[in-house]
Design a protein around this nucleic acid. Sequence first.
DNA 1: CCCGCTTGTGCAACTAGTTGCATAACGCGT
DNA 2: ACGCGTTATGCAACTAGTTGCACAAGCGGG
Lengths: 194, 194
Amino acid sequence: MSLPHAILTALLEKPSSGLDLTRRFDRSIGYFWSATHQQIYRELGRLETEGYIRALPAEQPARGQKKTYEVLPAGRAELARWTAAAQDPKPHRDALLLRLRAAAVVGTAGLEADLRRHLDLHRSQLAEYRQIEERDFPPGADGDQDRLRHLVLRAGIDLETFWTGWLTHALAEFAQLEQQPEQQPEQQPERQPE
Amino acid sequence: MSLPHAILTALLEKPSSGLDLTRRFDRSIGYFWSATHQQIYRELGRLETEGYIRALPAEQPARGQKKTYEVLPAGRAELARWTAAAQDPKPHRDALLLRLRAAAVVGTAGLEADLRRHLDLHRSQLAEYRQIEERDFPPGADGDQDRLRHLVLRAGIDLETFWTGWLTHALAEFAQLEQQPEQQPEQQPERQPE
DNA sequence: CCCGCTTGTGCAACTAGTTGCATAACGCGT
DNA sequence: ACGCGTTATGCAACTAGTTGCACAAGCGGG
């Protein structure tokens, strides 16, 4: 329920075409609200019919022809409304944690490799964030807009830091499990806490 | 694509009825893979027709009558397969970060209260996790199953710790913004990094 | 004895997100 | 002038998750 607002935000930051948006989502807003180009085009259509945005008058608006959108006052108002409205955090869904939990009953075979792979992914994401931070938010006083955006980036950095740390810890635990007689836990119910 | 596997895991930990599962999801597996009872019933149906689970022979399997399911060998095999298979992490979606980003262009009015509310929610979630940790994982050597489950819980604890920390930091930043002349950023494009 | 509350199961419709593919224009090499 | 890759837009079908409601059985009190 937030894709339209993500798009409005991006368009306010800079009027863009569908493909522009797609690219900017890939390296900025998409870090915490991903979207494919199909979603974006569909949503642009909706936003336009609802009067939140409009296509800038183009020469010949034909198919395969670039269309640049900008936000209308109604769109800005809607975004402000949504931003201020109270919203409950959505429950997370994390497949990796679920798999670990499953591994507790069904055996850890094969999991370790993927844990390692995830660790690499998180590490390189972290590096990417750090690079953005260095580029866009050099030390020194900055304006309110920058402070807010920096805050968002900080969340990304801290999250990736958490994951790399946790995965490292998890792998260390795995190493300990492995050196034990490698029991394949097959049948020992009769003890489930919680 | 993981709900069936979440259910298989839960059922392996202990055979249950739909409502049992719903309740256990609410206070355990649901922390990282939430599901409503409707989803669970639907999925139980599917898993049964696919031969992964079966209903324990009940007296009269009528509507409104409790049905307890258990996992069949095929179900255990499928869960093991899924656990071991490599999976890419899904992109996150976080509405709160998005709202912060929107606030950078549209103004921060009204946001602070909700930030505070989220902080409270994360704090109490953290407290709940800590309590579970104390109850289920007392210090001292524990078996492999416990180690793995503890690892999962640790992730939850560390995540909530991150959020409370970050939100606290964000609120501190907000306090600083507020004491400045409270400019409602209305129209100043011409500077968007990234 | 029947009324309302709780427990338990479930369908149907809707919303959001994903995947796969189609189409059009344009630039470039041969 | 023709085929090919790139840029750009978009539809359609599918999958997963959410919301709203219905229905049945049992239990306990007036």
